[in-house]
Every structure is written in structure tokens, then in C-alpha cells.
Design a protein around this nucleic acid. Structure first.
Lengths: 334, 334
DNA sequence: ATCTTTAACGTAAACGTTTACGTTAAATGC
DNA sequence: GCATTTAACGTAAACGTTTACGTTAAAGAT
């Protein structure tokens, strides 16, 4: 009982071709028939069937977004940006929660393929070879967000993790800190783990500060990692006056653990985070952190997808600037 | 250059009907031809076109989720639950960020209609008449999540806001508090505003405590509302020993404002939140709050959509139990 | 007055499937 | 040994569009 283009054609006494032309406003009809058809469309409440359209036009006006952690605040902001420009382009987004599982990722990739989506943004994970192969076979634009590929020629949008970590560390140093600990992602993580450690080390070295192995604890990026990491770190490096946390969640974990141990932030310990999530300003004390323009990055990633779709060729990667946002978790040492 | 069912039919020396039957494993072919066809499919890397399928089967294996605030942590958890079961059902979800704007909502609804989605979960907003009308015309299952409709017969999954607020208030009272303030959503908000105020009032009344108008401040549900609201509240109700915040974000705002004013939580002021978001355990001090089983609710909402799809009839609404989770932002008054 | 262009359509094929129906040959029943 | 059932397919219509191409009549050019 759904109303098709035939129904309006019949009622308006024209052919379906004419109706189609009018709906897509391509040339080929008079003002009067346009009026008539538009009116019939209104009366009947006709809406074109996107499936039939997509079958011919090879455009579904849908893009896929692959995220490892759907409920992380980082992802929320990315998705928010992506959704915004996607909607502006008249498309919609299917979110695919991969849980960092290869199987679920591949499964979703197949689903996206069958759904004939127009493009993909692949977020915060390393692009494995088989993922790349599947997407390449789909022959649609893809861009990486907050990750990059060293093996495949895929445009990405990121912040420079190394430089951002360098900045954070340098900020601490300039505030007079010398004994600086770090809680980071694992070294095996070549996207968000090792580079931030490298940046930290580089800054220390640049200011002629040596760092011992026990000054760095490698855990994950979430709250629990922060509290666990802090316990480990304070144990093996009690002289520490400041910590660089590789994510805001980790920083909150540190804040929380410190609070329970009666260590006052920032008076006894300075903490700097990474990301500038919304919670960074909600914490007590408000968290000083190095900001990534998350929403902007999400937006840009989607824009690049559409740009590639329209131009039919690849596009330059973007390194977004980071920025220290000063709040109240870091104290200047005199 | 995409590979269609025809290609595999030709290469396997069978008709497309047979290939179709095999792909959808419906009866009507021998073991040998199945082997053969499956092998050809493998060789060619054939994947059925979902659009063509959907055009006939009237199933797109896609559902739409409408959320007012995509980056809010509440929504993240809902979406997380929805995505999970949707994926289990072999479908995917399109997220639609309405920004609480009627126009964008309507726009998205049209898009979803054209995309021929199989179902809708509508989240945390009041279901206006025209929304309802559009969705009803689409003739697909819809369920409301964290909202309900008093005007239209749409199944919903919620917590009882009134009871939950009652519980929170009662908890405070049982801890010895008598002078209890509240920062709530606006009274005009008949879903999450007024009911929680009602619950608060009811609990106070049940314990024979009077509450004055100045004890309740009505703002919104986010962090800034919490800090602003607290300033207002502490100003007009300085004797207050405890606050009930209508959301965890608001509670964090209170914590933050109190910290800056050197009011110690929980020693000088007790705070209880609402929602039990992940940040509730990340705050300092960790937040005592009334928990909604957010992910479970998200899951259930999706399950109901699929149940309605399969059974082709409506379904009972669900009121989920809430629960006080005790952490460290409330002090027992002696 | 004739030819050419152009506007305003209509016809029908195509997009890639599913599925009702028809066909054939083998298997079964007696 | 013949009629009847059944397994194993193939044919073609349908799903709801877009679009290349053809057609008609009016307008413009010469």
C-alpha cells in the first residue's frame, strides 16, 4: 500500500519519467505540469524509495563509521562532528562498534559493503591489511580518523601525537617540574602508545633531563588504567612532582587515586591530561590538558570523504594543531 | 565492474534463481550444485546487493535511532546498548542527531522513510504529534526510550522518574538530612523535569518535611546548569545540608562549584546524582547516585523493536528498576 | 513554405535481486 | 509398465526508480 512514482504519474496524467524529472529537478517539463505533479505528490504524500534510487544511481547517501569503543567520550565527539557534516551533505551515518575485534570489524565491513554505502571513516585503530583489502575492493572513499597507516595510502586526519606529548611535557618542564612521570598506552600501540612516549622522552631530553624506566608506566587509556597506573608509579617513583597522562580518562584516574591517598592536586602533585574531553573541565580540580580539536577533526574526516566522493580522487591528510588548555591541575614550582 | 548474481550464475552454469536459493538457503538444489556455486561465489568474491534485496524483501536490516544530544554520555550508553543487540540481529543502526530541533527531526524522519528502515527507537524527547504521524505512516515498529507518550500508544522503556527521585530523596532523609535542596530540569519538561520534582516533593512530604519554593532550582541537565544552579541555590538556601541533582552532570557541576567555594563534599554538603554515568565513579569524591540501567535499557528498546517486527504487533512497555549506588558524596548526619 | 531546432514529454531498458510458476527427469507406487 | 509424485532446476515478473532514446508539435530560421 505504499505510494510509488507510478501512482503519482497516473493521478497527474503524466509518465513516470516526467515525475522523476520533476522530483530530481532535471530539465524537461513545463511550469504547469510541474505545478500539477507537485500538487499530486503533496496530496498523495509521495516519497521516493531510496533503495530503488540507490540501485540505479549507485549512491546510498550513507556512510559508515567504524569505532572501537562506542561509549567512550572521545568517540562521542568524533561521531558528533562526523554526523554534523554528513547531515549537511544530505547523508546519514551508520555507526559500527567493532570493539577492537577483528571478527566484528570484518563482519561490519561486509555488512557495509552489502548496504552499498558511499564512504567510510575508520577511527582510532590500526588499519589491518585485510580491512584495507575489503574496503579497497568496495571501491569507495575511506579516511582514517585519529590513526594513520604506514602501509597503505589512505588519507588521515590526526593530531601529531609525538608533538602533542612533547608540548605537554615541555609545559610541565617550563612550570619548573623535573621529576615527571608518565602513564601511557602500551608501547605496542604504534598509533597512540609509542609516539606519545617518544614525545615525552624527546622533550625531557631536549631540556637535558634524564628519565628512568620506572618513570613510565604503560597501561591503557581509561580510568582504571589511570588509578592502577598511578599506584604503580607513585610506588616506584615517589619523588615525582608531576605526571603526564596519555588521556584525560587516565588523568581522572590519577586524580581519583591521589584524592584517596590524600595527595593534593595540584599542590603536591601536578597532572596534565590529553584530549580535552568535556569531563576535563568537570573534574575537581579542573584538568589542564593538551587539547585535540575532536569535533573539528570528526567534521574534517567526513568532509574529506565527501570531497573524495565528488572529485573521485584522493586527498591530502591533515595534521590538526593541538593546544595546551590551562586549568588548575598543574602548579608552577618555584 | 561489480560482480552480480548473474556473473556467478553464468560461471557456475546455473540460473540466477538457483544461486539465489543457495545464498538464502531455501530448498531446491542438489548438494553438488551447492558446492559448485559456493565455490564460484568464493572465487568471484560475490556479495549480494542489499539494495536490490531490500527492494523486494522490504527489509533493509537497518533501524534508526533518534537522539537529541549525540555526545552526551547518557546517549552514548543508550546507543551502545542499542547497537549491541541490533548487531546481534544482523542489522545496523543509523544515528540521527536531532539537537532537539523539530526541523532536523522531521528532516531525519523523512530520510529514514526514504531509506526504508525497519524500525525506530526514539530517545529522551517528547513525541510530538507530527513526529508520531510521520512514523505511523511509515508503518514500522517504534519504541520510546527514556521517554513516554501520554497521547499516543507507543511502547516505551523507562525508569520511573518519580519513584527514582523519591528513592534518592528518601535516601538523603534516611541519612539524617532535613534541609534538602534540588536542582532539577524545568517544570515544563513533563518527561524528566516535573516527575522528578514530584518524586522529591512526595518523599519530603512522606517524611513530614516541608519544602519551600527556594529549595528547588530549575535549570537544565548539564554541567553548567549544575554550577549555575548551585550558586543560585546556595544563595537562597544556605542552611541546606544536601542536594539532589536531577542528573549526574548537574551533580558534577555542584561538586565543581562547591570545590571552588571551598565547600567540602561530603563533610559540609552531601550530593546525590541521577543516572549513574561512567563519570559518576570518576569524580572526586565518587558520586553517590541513583542508577538507571542505561545499557540494558538501550538493549531492551532495540529488542522490542525487533520483537515487534517479527510478531507484527505491539508490545508491552517496560519500567526498569532503579537503584541507589552508594559512593562517597553523601554523609550520614548524626 | 519548408527545414531545422527545441521544448515537452513518453517508452522502455536497466539496476540486482527474490519468488511464483512452469518444466523436466528421476523416483515412487501399484 | 504406467501414472503420480517429487527433486532440481529454469523463466520471467516484480520491486521502484533513473535515464537514454524516440516522438511530437510548436517555434525559429531562411
Amino acid at each position: 500500500m505504499t505510494i510509488t512514482i507510478k501512482d503519482v504519474a497516473k493521478k497527474a496524467n503524466v509518465s513516470i519519467a516526467t515525475v522523476s524529472r520533476i522530483v530530481n529537478n532535471k530539465p524537461g517539463y513545463s511550469k504547469e505540469t510541474e505545478q500539477k505533479v507537485l500538487q499530486v505528490i503533496q496530496e498523495l504524500g509521495y516519497h521516493p524509495n531510496g533503495l530503488a534510487r540507490g540501485l540505479i544511481s549507485k549512491r546510498t547517501h550513507t556512510i559508515g563509521v567504524l569505532v572501537p569503543e562506542i561509549s567512550s567520550m572521545l568517540m562521542s565527539e568524533f561521531i558528533s562532528g562526523i554526523e554534523h557534516v554528513t547531515h549537511d551533505y544530505g547523508s546519514s551515518v551508520i555507526v559500527c562498534h567493532t570493539e577492537s575485534q577483528g571478527q566484528k570489524t570484518r563482519q561490519y565491513l561486509q555488512v557495509l559493503k552489502e548496504k552499498q554505502i558511499d564512504g567510510i571513516v575508520f577511527t582510532s585503530e590500526v588499519l589491518k591489511k585485510d580491512y584495507y583489502q575489503i574496503i579497497k575492493d568496495m571501491d569507495i572513499p575511506m579516511v582514517l580518523l585519529s590513526t594513520e597507516s604506514f602501509d597503505f595510502p589512505v588519507p588521515y586526519v590526526k593530531v601529531s601525537d609525538r608533538r602533542a606529548a612533547y608540548s605537554a611535557t615541555e609545559y610541565l618542564i617550563k612550570k619548573g617540574h623535573r621529576k615527571i612521570g608518565m602513564i601511557s598506552g602500551r608501547r605496542g600501540d604504534i598509533i597512540a602508545g609509542q609516539p606519545r612516549i617518544d614525545g615525552f622522552m624527546a622533550a625531557m631530553k631536549a631540556y637535558e633531563l634524564s628519565v628512568k624506566d620506572e618513570w613510565i608506566v604503560t597501561e591503557g587509556f581509561n580510568f582504571e588504567d589511570g588509578v592502577n597506573g598511578f599506584h604503580k608509579l607513585i610506588d616506584q617513583f615517589p619523588e615525582m612532582t608531576a605526571v603526564f597522562a596519555a588521556s584525560d580518562e587516565v588523568a581522572l584516574g590519577i586524580l581519583s587515586a591521589a584524592y584517596k591517598m590524600n595527595i593534593h592536586v595540584p599542590d603536591q602533585l601536578s597532572v596534565i591530561g590529553y584530549d580535552n574531553l568535556r569531563i576535563a573541565e568537570m573534574s575537581t580540580p579542573p584538568l589542564t590538558t593538551v587539547a585535540q580539536p575532536l569535533v573539528e577533526m570528526g567534521k574534517k574526516s567526513a568532509e574529506l570523504v565527501f570531497e573524495m566522493m565528488e572529485s573521485n580522487r584522493s586527498v591530502e591528510s591533515r595534521i590538526f594543531p593541538h593546544e595546551i588548555v590551562e586549568r588548575q591541575s598543574v602548579k608552577e614550582l618555584s
